[in-house]
Amino acid sequence: MLQMKPFEYIAASSVDDAVRALGSRADARVLAGGTDLIVQLKSGRREAELVVDVKRIPELTAIAMDADGLRLGAAAACIHIAANRDVRTHYPALAEVAALIGGTAIQGRASIGGNLCNAAPSADAVPLLIALSARARVAGPDGRREIAVEDFCIAPGKNALAPGEFLVDVFIPKPASGTRAKYLRFIPRNEMDIAVAGVGVAATVVDGKITMARLALASVAPTPLFVREVGGALEGQAPSAALIEQAAALAQAAARPISDMRAPADYRRHICGVLSRRALSAVLG
């Protein structure tokens, strides 16, 4: 058994309550699903004096849809996201990705907000959130602000939150009519594995022309990687196999993976191209 070092625990009841608690210690950590944090506290990769549980804050577990888009409480468990009717109707790719993170018992706890805050390069939800132009809404001692998801992860395990800040929810604008999105990842097993590479794409096609396209990659850079140039290459064009190949090549060229126990770098780069082509074909085909 791996043991955690001692820490204090507070279950915050409101956003303000959580802000106060997080401000009270230099080394305070937010606990949502715990599927990353508790592993890290056990292994010693992270330490905490205080753990602030945010799951009892109603706003943090809410999944709410309105005319503008979807608000995904930062601590909403994947299993509830995957089962939510609005998510399944308007963001089917997001429902799929929520059902992809870990296995069933992990999904009972893990949250997409946590997936984002943990800032792992391999986070499955983040490339799709980037593709869907999602914004992270955070609260802190200086009030609330928004951060574009593509700017949220700044290094492996490091996010853009200022001291005392925490993620309240993720806002995903309602996709324009004609938009399709997809996240594809490659893992050697069929479950319970970390993406060797992942590709999230969203694209809008109106009257045979691509009016919007965004693509982001997992596991091929120190952070989830937004490949802006793919949008530039696709927008204004009519979808075709050749165009998709060209865009996939751009994505592959943007990848700068490392070799480790999960896969060699050249293989990750190769997979990046394959997945980009397949994901783009899925949304443009």
Partner: peptide, 18 residues
């Protein structure tokens, strides 16, 4: 594996206080 309020979870990744 146990269930917590009906949800399946791995109890090694849940704090007792939760």
């Amino acid at each position: 594996c146990v269930t917590l309020d009906g949800n399946l979870v791995t109890s090694c990744l849940v704090l007792g206080v939760e």
